[in-house]
């Protein structure tokens, strides 16, 4: 490539990243406006909170997927890992009767541990991320069923467990806007992940790996270690998602989980993170996750059958990526 050709194309990538986020954000606003006009119920506080609550689990999973995707990898196991973590929490709290904080720690540790294993398989054994995490997805699905004896584990003996996602400490302070804790946890995870990505070495290497892995290696960086760290961090975040979903259902449902990874990846892609790695933001992913839930909620309010909702979501994924391609081609 000559520098003549390279210069505009390269700055184009930068513009298009911001452009894509702007596009996603405008899309979200447009959806909100359309649905508000179409139905007076849409902008009711209660409905807005319901949308946010519905976003919390997918949003947290999508943030985990974002980290991995920025390295140029993919994680198909986020959904079943979430379930696995919920089941582990169920074992700790319900079977062993241990106190609530231990259950929380167990879930996050389980997620991190599985992430460590996936990361090691990918970095050390050089199994492609798609295959490694596909395998892990199935392994975890099976393990969740085995550990739970294929039956849901309920948290009735652990008072306060449902509060993790369903309670509202914001509501306790400002009764007018009882934002569920689950939503606050989503924002907290998003804030932390954004911080890690922009301010820490882990974040720097996440982008660097996705940008040019060989260059990072030739710079003398231990790329295996950092890659494993990214998958472990993503795993830990899936542990948080496990707590959220278990708390919302007041149970660990071992059969749940598969399919969540695709919603998560959809949110990441709509949010403008490049599947080839090197580019992406947490805020974009958050907007992507919100678009998916707003669509689901709004279409339901307009009595559009559920079958059609997935058709619309699918169309939007393709349009979102196509818009990015168009933008890059024109610059």
């Amino acid at each position: 490539m000559t520098d003549i050709a390279a210069t505009p194309a390269k700055s184009g990538i930068r513009i298009s990243g911001a452009f894509h986020r702007l596009l996603a954000f405008s899309g979200l606003i447009a959806l909100v406006v359309v649905f508000s006009l179409a139905s007076p119920n849409f902008m009711q506080t209660q409905n807005v909170l319901a949308i946010l609550q519905a976003t919390s689990v997918n949003g947290v999973l999508a943030i985990a997927a974002t980290l991995v995707i920025i390295t140029g990898g993919i994680d198909l196991s986020v959904g079943t890992l979430m379930t696995f973590c919920a089941v582990i929490t169920g074992v700790v709290l319900t079977y062993f009767g241990l106190p609530l904080p231990l259950g929380i720690v167990a879930s996050i540790l389980a997620g991190t541990g599985v992430g460590l294993v996936s990361g090691t398989i990918i970095a050390k054994l050089k199994v492609p991320p798609f295959i490694a995490t596909l395998g892990m997805m199935l392994i975890l699905k099976g393990l969740s069923l085995v550990i739970s004896g294929t039956k849901p584990i309920y948290f009735n003996d652990t008072p306060g467990f449902t509060q993790i996602a369903q309670g509202s400490f914001v509501g306790a302070i400002i009764p007018a806007i009882p934002v569920p804790n689950g939503v606050m946890i989503l924002f907290l995870v998003a804030g932390l992940a954004a911080f890690v990505l922009t301010k820490t070495a882990l974040g720097r290497y996440t982008f660097a790996l996705g940008s040019n892995e060989e260059a990072v290696r030739l710079s003398g960086v231990n790329i295996d270690r950092w890659k494993i760290a990214v998958y472990a961090t993503a795993g830990g975040i899936c542990g948080v998602a496990g707590l959220l979903i278990a708390s919302r259902l007041n149970s660990a449902q071992p059969a749940l989980g598969q399919g969540y990874e695709l919603d998560a990846i959809a949110a990441v892609v709509i949010g403008g993170t490049s599947l080839s790695g090197g580019r992406g933001t947490v805020i974009g992913t958050l907007i992507g996750a919100l678009i998916i839930s707003v669509l689901a909620n709004g279409l339901r309010i307009l009595s559009v059958p559920q079958e059609w909702q997935t058709v619309v979501t699918g169309t939007i994924i393709i349009l979102a990526v196509y818009a990015d391609i168009l933008r890059r081609r024109n610059l």
């Binding site: 660097a208 940008s211 710079s219 003398g220």
Partner: peptide, 25 residues
């Protein structure tokens, strides 16, 4: 062997970034 998505400074010091707050940031 550069990382196109990173800045010039980030590229130059990859693997040896100056840290603060006890190495955390």
């Amino acid at each position: 062997a550069l990382m196109r998505d990173l800045t010039a400074a980030q590229n130059i010091f990859i693997g040896r970034e100056p840290r603060q707050l006890g190495g955390w940031l």
